[in-house]
Design a protein around this nucleic acid. Sequence first.
DNA 1: ACTCAGGCGCTAC
DNA 2: AGTAGCGCCTGAG
Length: 105
Amino acid sequence: MHPHYAAYYAVIAEIPRGAVATYGQIARLAGRPGRARQVGYALHALPPGSPIPWQRVINARGELSLPELGGRKSRQRRLLEREGVRFDVRGRVDLRRYGWRPDVA
DNA sequence: ACTCAGGCGCTAC
DNA sequence: AGTAGCGCCTGAG
């Protein structure tokens, strides 16, 4: 496992139920701005059954960045809907409404 | 709303 | 060893 992955996982673990965050946002919060793509790799590398809420990470356009092939995309959508996240007709999430706004506290 | 280019790091062949 | 393609983003046009 690559060293920075743990930092991404730590941030992702903080996303509350009913909210979503973008890859770029995770990278920034993990102190690695510009590494959005690496966040995708980190998630891809997650073992099945991991407690990390991978489904709460979507792209900056509010879309699910997973191929429909293999049913992973629809699984992600199901998980999110179960948590209260709504999708529009085009299958997109309104980030203004569901986007995670971490408390700066 | 769209495309394009550049940046980023990794994987798989 | 090189390269193409990725769970991506931003800025410019």
